[in-house]
Simulated assay, not measured.
Amino acid sequence: MTLKKTALLLVLALTLRGGAYAQNLIVGADFSTRFDNREYAPNEFGEPQTLFSARLSPRIGVEWQQKNRLIVGADLLQNFGDDTKFLSKARPILYYQFNTKNVQANAGIFDRKELMGDYSRAFFSDSTAYYHNRLSGFMGRYQPASHPKTYVEMAIDWEGMYSHASREMFRILSAGRYTADRGFYFGYAFSMFHFAGRKGNENVTDNLLLNPYAGWEFNAYLDFDIRANFLFAPQRGRSVDHLWRKPCGGQLDITIRKWGIKIENNLYLGENLQPLRNYAANPATGLTYGQDGLYAGESFYATTKHIYNRTWVGYDRTFFKGTLGVEAGMVFHCDGTGLGTQQVVKLSVDIEKLFNIGTKKKH
């Protein structure tokens, strides 16, 4: 049975059961296209390449009692220049969502944008966030309506099934933020990645990352956001030497905005946060941990020069009540070995429409 037929049957079944409560039919779609040209030849820790793709994620579902949603959809990705098949990837979206004034919970396969936490590029690089855009598992968040910039969330993403072809992998994520008076805020982000073996290659690697931070948002004609971060990355490759490596460092983030123009600078000073990157992950294939997927963060955090500076200069703004987003800019990367540049252009669309398909509650 095709995904389209499954979605239609789901909506029909819930519609026929709609005699007790009013229901809404949800029809929506996300679209994005992203050009990312990376000129990293002068850098030791970045890989030069050009990524250019388009993604369409149509979805359909039912909402009932204003708190419950059941969604079915598809994530369709096409890498430009890949003419070997109709789509580069086609994957399902299927999840239940419970949503109240203060609480949201998801279960199933859902989009990464459902997460609210501020996970820096040390956790997920731009390309990881774009190409691994779905989470498979659970997510729960508490966000008091009286303090919309204060929240705490936790999620689990099951990324790989134990077999001859793939590793058993899952990631536990958590983030929280408390916003105080006068724009001051405090928060954290956390990741625990269980990177186990596959059949015929039994080994387990533990990869953790903790990022407590404090910041200040204020306006002085321009909008400023200044944040101080601490990054702590304990990890152990049990197939390497069973030793816990505990690299850490500090990062200062400064963002300035006005009329959609954005200047952002991220300065990291510290140790190599990806010390297992060049160790053998699978001797049979010759892959290293860096190639086999242990690290989802930006590869520049593997710097052995104790410095990584990223500067973004460009335009980032939404239009039409947030349904259309435009992002274009130049990025400069300095890892202590050279200066690399990156040009990024991204256009995104997110639309959703509700249609009443049920009846009011019977008496």
Results as ranks from 00 to 15, higher is better:
G237R: 02
F230R: 07
A155Y: 02
N219Y: 04
P148C: 00
R198T: 08
R177A: 06
F184E: 06
Y279P: 08
L222P: 02
P148W: 00
G270Y: 00
T179R: 09
F138Y: 14
Q274H: 13
H147T: 12
M139K: 15
H194E: 12
A228E: 10
T179N: 13
I254S: 05
F193V: 08
L273W: 01
C248M: 13
Y185T: 05
E217I: 09
W158E: 10
Y188P: 14
Y151D: 05
N272M: 02
L209W: 05
N229P: 10
Y178N: 11
Q143M: 06
A233Q: 12
T255N: 09
A155I: 07
N265F: 01
P234F: 01
R177L: 03
R171L: 15
P234N: 08
E159T: 12
A196S: 15
E271G: 04
S166W: 09
R141M: 10
Y142I: 05
G250Q: 02
I156P: 05
I156H: 10
N203E: 15
A233D: 10
F186Y: 11
Q251Y: 01
S239P: 05
I156T: 12
A165S: 13
G237M: 08
S166T: 14
Q143G: 01
K246R: 14
Y162Q: 11
A180R: 06
G140T: 04
W158H: 12
S166Q: 12
E168P: 03
A145D: 09
I261G: 07
G183W: 00
I261M: 14
V204H: 09
I254Y: 03
H242S: 15
V240C: 08
N229Y: 05
I172D: 09
A214V: 13
F138H: 10
Y178I: 13
N282I: 03
A155D: 06
N282Y: 07
S166V: 04
S174K: 11
T205Y: 03
F193Y: 13
Y142W: 02
V152T: 08
S146C: 00
V240E: 13
R236H: 04
P234M: 04
N219M: 11
K199M: 13
L210V: 12
Y151V: 01
A233R: 09
L173H: 07
A189T: 11
H164A: 13
E168D: 12
M192C: 12
D206I: 11
Y268M: 05
G183V: 01
F232I: 06
F170T: 09
L208V: 09
M169W: 08
S174C: 08
G249A: 01
F195T: 12
M192L: 10
M192A: 15
H164M: 13
K262Y: 04
A233N: 14
G249Q: 02
R167F: 02
H164D: 11
A220T: 04
V240L: 09
W259G: 09
G187A: 02
Y221K: 11
S146I: 00
G200R: 02
R177W: 01
G260I: 00
T150F: 00
G200L: 01
K246C: 08
A281Q: 13
